[in-house]
């Protein structure tokens, strides 16, 4: 057995706090957390892994009178699989999701999660934090939308469940109210033999995608697509579904040329954002290629 060092812990100097002053709450139960949120409303903000919120606070781009730290609420974390669904607690670390045998029943989670930041970020970052933060270039929001996941939202007065298509309202905004908390996400498990793929273009490893796609397909015995889901990230104010492309895909055994056409269809009616890293034109054009490639990969993986 390894012995722990007898040395005293490092005496860390007292470090100044960079964010604007706030009151810190550390509830031990979901009910206590919801009570704090009920009391302070939009003055309060839940703190999950802090991988987006803490930098924004430190740069004083945002400020809250109250932070409700969820890291001491054990009941909010955990992964369970039952009845064709994988349920992930909001405070589950992304790194745990990446390695979970239960979550492996939803292959997109294992494919998409490694693209979130760097491993240090995923060790701390949470599944619910990423989804509730709702960055339009985030990987997990796109998976939620693509798989039509169900999301549990709790408040002091009860819990409601909404579907992914209703959840995302715009950049960094969702239907979760100021006094509410996203507590769990239910991901449906697809049939055996379904194929999935994730592809994205980012400037550096771990950067937000300039353009990305998550997708899944199921095939029948004759290699025809019976089910298709295509989600895009970085292409609008929220993650987006490429419904027309999905419809075009179902019922076919697409050739490479047809996949190229479906890629174009996926981005046809979009008006993706422009920033210093990529223009609207780039995101559209390259988005079509990325969809084609991801579908090609998903089809290769399907039916096995």
């Amino acid at each position: 057995m390894r012995k722990r060092s007898a040395k005293p812990p490092l005496a860390l100097p007292c470090r100044p706090v960079k964010p604007a002053p706030f009151e810190y709450h550390a509830p031990a139960t979901t009910a206590d957390a919801l009570a704090v949120l009920a009391e302070h409303g939009d003055e309060a903000k839940p703190l999950a892994g802090g991988q987006s919120l803490v930098p924004m606070l430190a740069l004083r781009l945002t400020r809250f009178g109250h932070l409700v730290d969820l890291n001491r609420v054990p009941e909010l974390a955990g992964i369970e699989r039952h009845n064709g669904t994988v349920t992930v607690g909001t405070m589950t670390r992304q790194a745990d999701l990446e390695r979970s045998p239960d979550a492996a029943a939803v292959p997109l989670l294992g494919l998409a999660t490694p693209l979130i930041g760097h491993f240090q970020i995923r060790n701390r970052g949470t599944v619910g934090g990423s989804i509730a933060h709702a960055d339009p270039a985030g990987e997990l929001p796109a998976v939620v939308l693509t798989l039509d996941a169900q999301l549990d939202i709790a408040s002091a007065s009860g819990t409601r469940t909404v579907s992914a298509s209703e959840f995302f309202e715009g950049t960094w905004t969702t239907v979760v109210g100021d006094d509410e908390l996203l507590t769990a996400v239910h991901f449906p498990v697809w049939a055996d033999g379904a194929g999935f793929a994730v592809d994205e273009v980012a400037r550096r490893l771990g950067d937000f995608a300039l353009v990305g796609v998550v997708c899944g397909v199921e095939l029948d015995g004759s290699s025809k697509v019976t089910r298709a889901a295509i989600g895009l990230l970085g292409m609008g104010g929220t993650p987006l579904r490429a419904a027309a492309a999905e419809q075009a895909l179902v019922g076919t055994a697409p050739t490479d040329d047809e996949l190229t056409e479906i890629g174009r269809l996926a981005v046809a009616d979009l008006d993706p954002p422009a920033d210093i890293h990529a223009s609207t034109e780039y995101r559209s054009s390259v988005g079509a290629h990325v969809v084609k490639r991801a579908l090609r990969t998903a089809l290769e993986r399907a039916g096995g």
Binding site: L59, H118, R203, R204, L205, G206, D207, F208, I276, H277
Partner: peptide, 26 residues
């Protein structure tokens, strides 16, 4: 990867390491 960019009003658009794409060993 790298390049400092200003807009026409002289606002720095690359004043943090998210927008200024300094690479790492990865």
């Amino acid at each position: 990867y790298e390049g400092v960019v200003y807009d026409e009003d002289g606002n720095p658009l690359t004043a943090n390491l998210m927008d200024y794409a300094m690479p790492s060993a990865a």
